[in-house]
């Protein structure tokens, strides 16, 4: 399969055995990509070696005692128990609501940047940038879709998958933005995803459909 240096990231994103093999074949003849691929694989190998185990025979008895204590206390509770239980369940449900958790965490993280947005009225600019991306993507997509549909090359299949995943992630970002328009962190993420999608569509259009793929 003929690939060039700009395809390396797409192959790494796809991460299928075929993509990784293709990346390795390219890296064998390209020093720049070989260095990147080596770091990529080194990171994965190092991570795999970080799964951590240790034996502590005292841990389970300790947890068991803490549970027994908590259960016993629960049983001793006064008539308020029913209400407390409902309240606790409600609080936990809220506490465990991943969306809430996600949104709140993002709000804290984005707070600093949010302040800047208010001060500088940068929100308009952010929204304009988003609109520009959407327009550019729509233009590119018209041509890229036809090309993607008419080929079964592994590279095009991996582009298709990448684009679908990006759409997925973009949609999720948009849902979060609908909940909180001022969330600067998510808006930054969305812009990054739009850029990536635009770049990927350009890569698709640049690909030569007549290149042999196997």
């Amino acid at each position: 399969m003929n690939i060039n240096c700009s395809n390396l990231d797409d192959l790494l994103f796809d991460a299928s055995p075929l993509s990784m093999r293709t990346a390795a074949e390219h890296a064998a003849a390209c020093a720049a990509c070989a260095e990147k691929l080596e770091a990529w694989n080194d990171i994965s190998a190092t991570a795999k070696s970080m799964q951590t185990a240790w034996q502590n025979d005292l841990l389970w008895p300790r947890i068991e005692r803490a549970l027994a204590k908590e259960i016993a206390e629960g049983k001793r509770r006064t008539p308020l128990r029913g209400f407390s239980r409902i309240a606790a369940v409600a609080l936990l449900t809220i506490g465990l609501g991943s969306t809430m958790w996600f949104t709140m965490r993002e709000q804290v993280r984005g707070a600093k940047f949010n302040g800047k947005i208010y001060q500088n009225s940068a929100m308009d600019e952010v929204e304009k940038a988003e609109r520009d991306h959407v327009r550019a993507i729509a233009n590119l997509q018209k041509f890229a879709d036809a090309k993607l549909e008419n080929t079964e090359s592994p590279l095009m299949v991996s582009y298709k998958e990448k684009l679908m995943l990006l759409d997925d992630a973009i949609a999720e970002c948009q849902v979060n933005i609908d909940r909180n328009r001022q969330n600067a962190h998510i808006r930054e993420q969305l812009l990054a995803m739009y850029s990536e999608k635009q770049q990927t569509l350009k890569d698709v259009l640049r690909e030569d459909p007549n290149v042999s793929n196997q």
């Binding site: 990231d9 790494l12 994103f13 991460a15 260095e35 990147k36 770091a39 990529w40 080194d42 990171i43 994965s44 991943s98 969306t99 958790w101 996600f102 679908m164 995943l165 990006l166 759409d167 997925d168 992630a169 999720e172 990054a192 995803m193």
Partner: peptide, 25 residues
């Protein structure tokens, strides 16, 4: 576990590994 889509998890992993890759060497 994180309340995100499967696709977003894949995207986050890729961009994180890219960031790590750049700093690794």
């Amino acid at each position: 576990i994180l309340g995100i889509s499967e696709g977003n998890s894949k995207w986050i992993l890729f961009s994180t590994k890219k960031e790590l890759q750049e700093k690794w060497n």
